[in-house]
């Protein structure tokens, strides 16, 4: 399973609602006809997801463009 976020990127972030730490957990991301399991940081209590800017603007954008041209 792919892991695109390093611990360094989320170590300072906590869930503001639950005041809980984040942990890497399997999450399904999908676009158009494809879906992929990836490890993303989520709130240990409520499951709120954290996606850093680098992931959104690089890897996710790259996959979106590849899926769109299929």
């Amino acid at each position: 399973m792919a892991q695109y976020v390093t611990e360094e990127e989320f170590v300072h972030w906590r869930c503001a609602k639950c005041n809980s730490e984040l942990e890497l957990r399997k999450v399904v991301v999908s676009y158009l006809d494809g879906s992929f399991p990836v490890e993303l940081p989520v709130c240990k209590v409520c499951g709120q997801i954290f996606i850093p800017e680098s992931l959104a603007t690089q890897k996710m954008l790259e996959i979106e463009q590849q899926m769109e041209d299929k």
Partner: peptide
Amino acid sequence: FNVYSHRMVVEEGN
């Protein structure tokens, strides 16, 4: 301080 976006859909707990 920052804004960004993505189109991929992420399954998320409530």
